[in-house]
Design a protein around this nucleic acid. Structure first.
Lengths: 243, 243
DNA sequence: CCTATTTTCCACAGATCTATGGATAACAGA
DNA sequence: TCTGTTATCCATAGATCTGTGGAAAATAGG
């Protein structure tokens, strides 16, 4: 009888884990989960961000909810989804790491972009901490504003990639820029670095994104202490660290 | 054009990650991966261990190989599969942790077995290290012999669950037993602890299994320094630490 | 070369998953 | 209560996945 209960339990167990696996079998669901590890969002916002129709996005979110990887919060007629806990983000991180480590195709995508987006050329967290303390670098958060507001590296400037070209002039050309985004597999920071380098600025990517920063136990700031969509009046250079 | 390349790259990226996700969508594939994180095995051994027909097992292994999560080694007419790297094991670990943390059903499976298999009642790695140093406990590896041979906690005794009842008498009743197996979600150690307690012995599970031990950077021994299938002649008590 | 062993490949039927548009439900505000 | 907004539910058609048995490869040993 013990044998039986063990065999049954084991089958059950792997079936439960497969419920979680089901979530990451669809590219769009991975994308959704990735977004939700950055900040909570409404169904419509998620649909727009991922290019899905509303009903399809909702269906995917139901699958994720069944697996208990996401939770919801209702606000009037709107429903906000969020990652169901730190373990979810760790799982997504592990998936990304595995992809980075094992899939040559992933590496090629980054090589194609160029701009030192390969892992070896990136700034480590330790290096950033040290150089930021001595004021040698500007830390740039190139994710959308909502994600910056939900949590960012203390002292980082919010400059979403979509506004980068327009606000290039605000950057102090004498300082090196370290850009970060959602994680090692996110393309926002690599694109930003490519743009900055094309303009002759010194710029590098951080090795990881905010979730890894948080998972490493480092402090995270929240809210938009700096106006994000438009620069403050009469300010020529991005604040934070002046020469 | 930068927008286009970015969007394309992003879609590609998540599609690549979904290749990995595809592996863990099927309970049997998770089980196979779990086994392969312990030791390499032939196709037939895997089929037997998971209760799959040979052709089905092979098909599953092909899926896993396409995702580059496993690699093979040929030896004569036999093909041995193994996990493709430490990141693979970390990913499986993260999946298990997530299941443990988020799925109430998983917890219930362990409560059903009882015997202190819930996480809170388990021995931590730190505690084990300390108590093993002072010789207060016997560390029992209850996995199959092949897995013990492929890697085990230094000083641990190999006593596969299937032989536990038969070899109960060899255990020194004066020492507490700490049993470990494949990981927190493996049922071998919990079953072993249940058996031992039913016989009046003091026994607990280790919080994790060997992969986590290895991932924590702790030393791992290999080979069978102690005869595994049959106890050595004239030995009454399991060696290692004597009273 | 022939045979036995182990694994992979192939074709197919049954099951499951996905996207979609239309209907329904929950809620806020007039 | 009625209307507009947001999200979920439902039915369905097309695609994909699974398990299966039989055939084909690869290899070792006569």
């Amino acid at each position: 009888m013990e044998n039986r209960s063990q065999a049954d339990g084991r089958a059950d167990l792997y079936e439960q884990l497969a419920r979680i696996g089901k979530v990451v079998v669809h590219p769009k669901r991975i994308e959704l989960l990735d977004l939700l590890c950055q900040a909570e969002r409404s169904v419509e916002a998620l649909a727009v961000a991922t290019g899905l129709k509303l009903t399809t996005a909702s269906a995917h979110l139901q699958v994720m909810r069944q697996a208990r990887l996401v939770e919801t919060r209702r606000e009037g007629t709107r429903v906000y989804y969020r990652a169901a806990g730190e373990e979810v983000c760790r799982f997504v991180t592990a998936l990304g790491d595995l992809g980075w480590a094992r899939l040559a195709e992933v590496d090629q995508i980054f090589r194609a972009i160029g701009a030192g987006s390969e892992r070896a050329e990136r700034v480590t967290r330790a290096e950033l901490l040290e150089r930021a303390r001595s004021g040698e670098v500007v830390v740039l958060d190139v994710r959308p504003v909502e994600e910056y507001a939900a949590g960012h590296i203390p002292g980082a400037i919010s400059l979403p990639l979509e506004h980068l070209e327009a606000r290039l002039g605000e950057l102090d050309p004498g300082l090196e820029v370290v850009a970060y985004c959602r994680g090692p597999l996110c393309l926002l920071a690599p694109e930003a670095v490519a743009t900055l380098r094309a303009r002759g600025l010194q710029a590098r990517c951080l090795e990881d994104g905010l979730p890894e920063w948080r998972q490493a136990g480092l402090p995270v700031a929240a809210g938009t202490d700096i106006p994000a969509t438009a620069p403050a009046e009469g300010r020529e250079t991005i604040p934070g660290r002046r020469r």
